[in-house]
C-alpha cells in the first residue's frame, strides 16, 4: 500500500493535517507514533496548534480517539479518562499533547493537580515558545530576548523552568526531548508511554511561522539549541534522580547561529554574552542536581 491508508502513516496525525510546513510539532508527532508502535492511545489535546491540525469539520487528521479540551483542563480531562480506562480494565494509554500555553501558563493549575495525584497519564508538552495558533503572542515559555506579536521589543523575563516545577512534584518521570537526537527521543517516548503514574515530556518544537525561521532549519535549530546548552536534554526520576543525557559543548558559534537563523531575536536587547551567562548559571544548577 502506498496511499494514506498504509501503515507508514500510522494513526496519529495522518496526512492532510494543516500544520505549517516544517513544523517541529509534526516531527515530534511522527517520532512519537513510530516509537509507541501499536500501543492503544487516547489523546487529549487542549487548545493549541495540534487541535487546529486536525483540519476543519467534517475532517479529522487523527485516527485515534481525541478529546479536544479547553486550555485550562487538559490534565484534569485526561485524569478522568485514565480513571475510566482503569475501571474498565482497558489497556489504553492516555496522552495529553499540549502546547506551551496549555502547559506553562493556562494549563498549569490542572497539570499540577494531576501531577500531585500521580494520575496515570503521559503529558507531552511540545514547546514552540509562543501561542502559535492564536497569532504568536508571548507565553511564559518564550525565552528572554525573543520577540512576539504582542511585545514590541524582545522579552525581558527568562523562560519558566517547567522541568524544575514538574520535578518538584516528585512525579515518576520527567524528561526533555531533542528532535535532533532521535535515538534519545525514541528511548524516552518508549519509556514514558509504558511507564506508570504521571509522566511528563518537554519537546523543543521549532515553529517556522512564529520563530520566523526557514522551515528547513527546524531540526538544525534544535541541534544548535542542544549544542549551545540553551536546551538541556535531561531526565528526572521521582523528582530526585537527575541525569544529563547529552553534554553540550557550549559553543558560542552555535549560540550565535541559533539566534541569527531566527528573525524573532532581531529586536532583542539581550546580547549573546548575557545569554551565555544565563546558560552557565542554569548548567551550574543542573550539574549540582545531577551529581
Amino acid at each position: 500500500m502506498k496511499g494514506p491508508e498504509s501503515p507508514q502513516y500510522g494513526r496519529l496525525l495522518r496526512p492532510g493535517n494543516t500544520n505549517c510546513g516544517g513544523c517541529g510539532m509534526s516531527v515530534a508527532f511522527q517520532m512519537f507514533r513510530r516509537s509507541i508502535g501499536e500501543t492503544n492511545v487516547q489523546l487529549v489535546i487542549p487548545a493549541c496548534c495540534a487541535a487546529v491540525a486536525a483540519g476543519g469539520f467534517p475532517f479529522s487528521a487523527y485516527e485515534a480517539p481525541v478529546l479536544l479540551s479547553t486550555f485550562a483542563s487538559a490534565a484534569s480531562t485526561a485524569s478522568g479518562m485514565s480513571q475510566v480506562a482503569r475501571l474498565n480494565c482497558e489497556d489504553t494509554r492516555v496522552v495529553c499533547w499540549a502546547g506551551d500555553g496549555g502547559t506553562y501558563d493556562i494549563g498549569l493549575a490542572s497539570l499540577s493537580g494531576a501531577a500531585e495525584r500521580n494520575e496515570d497519564i503521559l503529558f507531552v508538552c511540545y514547546d514552540n515558545e509562543i501561542y502559535g495558533n492564536t497569532g504568536g503572542q508571548r507565553s511564559s515559555a518564550t525565552p528572554a530576548g525573543a520577540g512576539a506579536s504582542n511585545i514590541t521589543k524582545g522579552k525581558i523575563e527568562p523562560k519558566k523552568d517547567i522541568i524544575g516545577i514538574m520535578a518538584a512534584h516528585g512525579i515518576p518521570y520527567a524528561a526533555t526531548v531533542s528532535l535532533a537526537n532521535p535515538d534519545d527521543a525514541r528511548r524516552k517516548f518508549e519509556r514514558s508511554i509504558n511507564g506508570k503514574g504521571f509522566r511528563f515530556l518537554l519537546i523543543l518544537a521549532p515553529c517556522p511561522t512564529g520563530w520566523k525561521s526557514d522551515p528547513s532549519m527546524t531540526i538544525e535549530l534544535v541541534r544548535l539549541a542542544v549544542r549551545s546548552g540553551l536546551f538541556p536534554v535531561i531526565e528526572v526520576e521521582n523528582g530526585n534522580r537527575w541525569t544529563i543525557n547529552i553534554d553540550p559543548d557550549f559553543s558560542r558559534a552555535d549560540l550565535e547561529r541559533y539566534l541569527s537563523l531566527q528573525r524573532r531575536f532581531r529586536k532583542s536587547e539581550i546580547n549573546p554574552d548575557d545569554m551565555g551567562k544565563a546558560i552557565d548559571l542554569q548548567w551550574g544548577k543542573l550539574r549540582t542536581l545531577a551529581s
Partner: peptide, 29 residues
C-alpha cells in the same frame, strides 16, 4: 525520520526511498 509529514517511505524491493508528493509540503528539512 525527520520528515514532518511522513511523505518519505522506503521501497524495500527497489532499495530506494519514494516521495509522496500529494502530502509533501516542501519544507526542505
Amino acid at each position: 525520520v525527520m520528515c514532518p509529514d511522513a511523505a518519505i517511505s522506503p521501497d524495500f524491493q527497489k532499495n530506494i526511498f519514494v516521495w509522496n508528493y500529494d502530502y509533501c509540503k516542501g519544507c526542505g528539512i
